[in-house]
Structures are given as structure tokens and as C-alpha cells.
Design a protein around this nucleic acid. Structure first.
Length: 481
DNA sequence: ATATCTGTAAC
RNA sequence: GUUGUUACAGAUAU
């Protein structure tokens, strides 16, 4: 069927070569921190880079979703014209006739009634963006700071939480928690391009990045709109661009930290003089500043941050940006972080629990899955509930979640038991337990047993701090570049 | 040991 | 119908 599908070892070879070149880019960007890369367009348009980019787009879940041209990656693959399409794309990139099409707008519901605007690029545009990312990410990763955790390779939300736990367990008891208003939508193009230009001198690459920012949007009603600010939520490059823009914050805080608070003695002297110490932890547009000082010290930082963000076109959300003490606690990345007394002692400890919002939301989803008409049979129901519970627990096991897990076990058991009983009309609970449940309580169907969240062991992972490697840190075996 | 596919979480 | 990045988990196949 696929007359010209890329074969496996051509792909493997391409992936190895791309990784080798990425490692070099990463190394060069590190050796000369002010180096501006002048000749990277040829990499973006390189057949191997485009092939790896295509592979990425093809295997994403969005391979079934089309942009404004109505083409899906699946259709292109089925038509068997992949290599020809990549070749044509390469030609259009090199002759500079390539133009990104507008993104297709899709509104999806967020939590509690709000809407989120997605901008879905065409498959071709996704490939070019993916190729751009292959080139730009190793370069910009070199300048990104350890305090930034979102959208970055090898970094998990749990790393950010471990950092907060680490400093919260020391003198950093006041927290400025913040939210940037419609971050993706409001990033200023000129300011963003200025930051991209610090590392990239290649005019063709800069033009491509800018073109994707300016590609415009085709609304659900079919109207064309230009995009004067922001980067489309759905673009492969968008998370990287957001980090490039938001790294102004990281840079600002690192500077202050390195100049005046970098060593233990300096921080101690500052505290002696009544001065505060503070640190930023950021996950995409969500961030906190841990402050060893007073509430006023934290309040002061709020204005500083607003000033740093303003040139990027970014504004703080008035309601969601606030100062709290660890005594009151705060929500961050789905967790609730708060001081509690350790059992039987007088010692305060920083604990991280699943937030109320996270627990409510998973309960709602279990309720929806266990409503009467949701599933044809018990086995399918268990499959759905199990995968939900398993995924949820694996995210929240990095905290003090055993209480929540126990509660969830109880809640789900009853929901599923109720579902079963409705299907066996007339049976009493006692008969049900005897006839349907294994050992009187275990719920099993076709060898699938209801997952018990209470069996998930919680782990406490240490703050990995400054020692998280990038995928390009170690040299790879003999790249042929 | 490779590779498919599904799912969860964060944003 | 729902895109994207990152992390994690499970199932299947050889």
C-alpha cells in the first residue's frame, strides 16, 4: 500500500544523525554563551530533520486531526506520498515559497465553565515547526535556568514540587504565588523575536518563527483573523517559544540570587541585616517565589515581577497572584502544599497533598464512568476506571497521598458496586456479595480486577536541583555530520 | 530486548 | 469532536 513509506533503518539513521547534530549545537551554545547561530536553516530543511519531524507528527495523537487544509497525517500516510511530500516541502522551504497557513480554531471546555482556545496548525506546518524545534531546543536549553521546569526535557512537575518542598523546609516560609494572564495569547511578537535573535542570527529561521507567530487564525465561524500577539496553543513550537519569553523572569531572579544570595554566608548576613532572600520556581506560566523574610518582602517582589514581564506583553492575574504563608498553604501543580505538625511531635513539616480541586475532579470523572449507561459490561467499565485511577495515583504518589488514595478506594468501590447491583435487579447486598464478588468484596470481570488506589505506595523524591541532564549532555556515538 | 497502542498528570 | 510540550504508567505484539 505505502509505495514510498520511509523504511525503518532510514528513520533510525536519521534519528541518530539528528541527535548527533543536536548534541553539537548544544555543546557549541554552551561553550560560547553569546554565540549567535548563523547557519541553521539548512538543518531545518534537512531531509533527516524533516523525516524525524514527520515521524513525530505522525505518531502524535493529533495525527487524526486536520488543520485548515482538511488533511490529516493518517491520510497522507495512507496515500503513500510521505517521501514525495517531504521532498516537496523541502523544496518550498529552500525556495522560500513556503508560507504557514492559519491555525484552525477549536474551543474546548476548561475546568468550571471556562473555554480554552486551541489553534491547530496543518500537518505540513506541524512538520516544519517540529523541525524548527529539533534545531532550536538544544540551543535554547543551554540558556534555560534550573528553576524552570515546564515543557522541558527530563523535567517533571514533581521536580518543581521537590524544590518548593526543599526551600519551604528551610527559612522560606512566605510564598508569592502567581499566574500570568492568558500567557500564550499575549506574548509580544517583537519582544519574543528579540530574545530568539540573541541566539539565532540566521534570517531565514527567524523569518520562519515569525511567520508561525503571525500565521493568523481561522475561527470556528470561518472568519480569518490576524494574530497580533501570542503563539498558538497547539503549535509544536509554542511551548518552547513560551519558555523563551518567560525566561526573562528566570534571568531576573537568577541575577539577583547570584549577585547577593548565592552563598550561605551571604544569605545569613542579609538576614542579619533584616534583608530577605528569595527564589523563583516556575512551571510554564505558573510560578511561585519562596521568600525567607516578611510578607512585605514578598509583596514588594510582586511589583518587580510585573515590571519584568511587561515588556514581553505579559500581565499578572490580579486575583490569582497573591502572598500566602505556608501555614495557610497554597495549591501548585495539582498539589496542596502546607505546614502540618508531624504526628506526635511539635515539629512543623511541609506536606504536599492532592489538592481539593484535583480530588474533586477525579471523583467527578469516576462518577461519570460509573453511571448506568456509561458502559456495556463490567470488564469495559473496570478497564476505564482502572486506567483513570492508575494514572491519577502515579502522579500523586509523589506526596502525602495515602489518605486520598484510601478515600478514593472506598469511593470507587461503592460506585462500582452500585453499578453492578443496578444490573442485578432484585438481588440484596448480601446475595450480591456472595454470588458476584470474589471473596465477598473483590470486584473482578474477565480476569480484570478493580484497581485499588490504596495499594499504591507513596514516594518522596529528593530535589534534583541543578543536576538534571538534557538529552544532549552526553556525547553520542560517532555522528556523521 | 525492540516496537505498537491506550491512559493519567502538569501547563 | 480535543492541539501541543513534558513526565509517568499500563496493555499488546515480536
Amino acid at each position: 500500500m505505502n509505495t514510498d513509506a520511509p523504511n525503518e533503518w532510514a528513520l533510525l539513521r536519521a534519528e541518530r544523525r539528528v541527535l548527533g547534530i543536536q548534541t553539537k549545537l548544544h555543546r557549541w551554545a554552551g561553550e560560547d554563551r553569546s554565540r549567535r547561530f548563523d547557519d541553521v536553516f539548512n538543518l531545518v530543511a534537512d531531509p533527516d530533520f524533516l523525516l524525524v519531524a514527520w515521524e513525530r507528527v505522525r505518531s502524535n495523537t493529533g495525527a487524526r486531526t486536520a488543520g485548515v487544509d482538511g488533511l490529516t497525517a493518517r491520510q497522507i500516510e495512507a496515500a503513500g506520498g510521505v517521501l514525495a511530500m517531504l521532498d516537496d516541502l523541502r523544496g518550498r522551504l529552500r525556495s522560500r515559497t513556503f508560507r504557514p497557513l492559519p491555525v484552525r480554531e477549536r474551543m474546548i471546555p476548561k475546568s468550571e465553565g471556562k473555554l480554552r482556545r486551541l489553534g491547530i496548525p496543518t500537518v505540513i506546518d506541524r512538520i516544519v515547526q517540529a523541525s524548527l524545534k529539533l534545531v532550536l531546543e538544544p540551543i535554547f536549553e543551554q540558556g534555560f535556568r534550573p528553576c524552570s521546569y515546564g515543557f522541558r526535557p527530563n523535567r517533571r512537575a514533581q521536580d518543581a514540587l521537590a524544590e518548593i518542598h526543599h526551600f519551604g523546609s528551610r527559612k522560606y516560609h512566605w510564598v508569592l504565588e502567581g499566574d500570568i494572564e492568558a500567557c500564550f495569547d499575549t506574548i509580544d511578537h517583537a519582544a519574543l523575536m528579540d530574545r530568539v535573535r540573541r541566539r539565532i542570527a540566521d534570517k531565514r529561521v527567524l523569518a520562519l518563527v515569525k511567520a508561525f507567530c503571525k500565521a493568523g487564525i481561522l475561527t470556528e465561524l470561518g472568519q480569518q483573523q490576524e494574530t497580533r500577539t501570542g503563539t498558538p496553543q497547539g503549535g509544536i513550537l509554542s511551548p518552547l517559544l513560551a519558555n523563551i519569553a518567560l525566561s526573562v523572569l528566570d534571568d531576573y531572579f537568577i541575577q539577583a540570587w547570584q549577585q547577593t544570595m548565592s552563598d550561605h554566608n551571604a544569605r545569613y548576613r542579609r538576614r542579619g541585616k533584616g534583608l530577605a532572600n528569595w527564589r523563583l520556581t516556575r512551571y510554564a506560566d505558573d510560578w511561585v517565589v519562596m521568600v525567607a523574610g516578611t510578607r512585605t518582602d514578598a509583596e514588594t517582589l510582586r511589583e518587580e515581577i510585573a515590571t519584568v514581564l511587561a515588556p514581553m506583553g505579559l500581565r499578572l492575574s490580579e486575583t490569582k497572584t497573591r502572598v500566602v504563608h505556608l501555614r495557610e498553604g497554597l495549591d501548585f501543580l495539582g498539589y496542596h502544599i502546607q505546614w502540618r505538625f508531624k504526628r506526635g511531635t511539635n515539629n512543623r513539616h511541609v506536606y504536599t497533598y492532592p489538592s481539593k480541586k484535583a480530588l474533586t475532579s477525579v471523583k467527578h470523572r469516576i462518577r461519570a464512568l460509573t453511571c448506568q449507561k456509561a458502559h456495556p459490561d463490567l470488564a469495559t467499565l473496570l478497564l476505564g476506571v482502572n486506567s483513570l485511577l492508575r494514572g491519577w495515583c502515579h502522579y500523586f504518589k509523589h506526596g502525602s497521598s495515602s489518605g486520598a488514595f484510601g478515600y478514593l478506594n472506598h469511593y470507587t468501590w461503592w460506585r462500582v458496586a452500585r453499578w453492578i447491583r443496578k444490573r442485578h435487579a432484585g438481588l440484596s447486598w448480601r446475595e450480591l456479595r456472595r454470588k458476584v464478588f470474589t471473596d465477598g468484596y473483590r470486584i473482578v470481570a474477565d480476569g480484570i480486577e478493580l484497581f485499588n488506589p490504596a495499594t499504591v505506595a507513596t514516594v518522596h523524591d529528593r530535589w534534583r536541583g541543578y543536576h538534571i541532564p538534557t538529552p544532549w549532555s552526553q556525547p553520542t556515538s560517532s555522528p556523521t555530520a
